[in-house]
Amino acid sequence: MDAFLQHLVNGLVLGGTYALLGIGLTLIFGLMNLVNFAHGELYTLGAYATFAAVALGGWNFFVAVAAAIVVGAVAGALCERVLLAPLRDESIDTTMLVMIGLWIALQNAELLGWGGVAKSIPHPFPTAPLTLGPVGIAPLRVFVVLTALALIGLSWLLIQKTRLGTAMRATFQDRETAALMGVKIGRIHTATFAFGSALAAAAGALLGPIFLAYPSMGDLASLKAFSVVILGGLGNLAGATLGGVLLGIAEELGAGYVSSGYRDAVGFVIIILVLLFRPSGLFARSQRIG
């Protein structure tokens, strides 16, 4: 039982960041009809940006995390303007190929820039775990899960309560009518991609210090983000949050009770099963962002 609780807590930490990845991707996928294979690279970028700021720049850790999120947003906006905006009327296959290209290019650029050796990101938290009854949790992990929750809350506020968020949802539901209301669809696309990228970078900045930063860390992150999106249903914000947490917990339990070698298979199996048997996602009935 104690072990179970411990897995649950670890799963929650992981799940919070998966949710961040998933929310970003579900917005991009849902609003722009874009299969963003480069999503994981923004995650990698977030981790390396934090590393650069802390280890090389000597910045304060918290400032570095915030800076990484900004870097993610800017990089996302740039990608959208340069690569995607000219292809807005192209088919989903075309833009998917571009994103695959971007993925490979960014990953290898990171490999060239930082080398293949994994970097550990210094952080100011003590290593001794906090104990709550039978469960031990490192202070860093507490910070990660709280920050993730805060960011999820902020995203929700942005989407639900702001003028931009309403316009994003309106565009998602009926692009042409949104245009009739005076929404500039191009700007909504850029904002959405930048926002989703910022969340991915945030996930990288948060998980990077727990694990390590290495160039191919984004591959699995992308796939996990996709499983979260598929689990939660396309464009479903609450679904992505729940899906992320579920995936995190399922992975921890799978690794703990089945085999740690198959930890990463959980996401794959989810993608296959959900798409085959419930393609609209597990939470299709709950309210969609769109």
């Binding site: 989903i92 998917m96 796939l223 070698g261 794959f268 296959i272 798409l275 085959l276 393609p279």
Partner: peptide
């Protein structure tokens, strides 16, 4: 038979996942 119920992006994801699972099996 399984994956071609879905098309486009979803087919891509199913095939990626298939390769991912097979690869993990080969390792484990």
């Amino acid at each position: 038979r399984l994956a071609l119920k879905v098309r486009g992006a979803y087919f891509v994801l199913v095939t990626i996942s298939f390769a991912g699972v097979i690869s993990l099996v080969s390792i484990n």
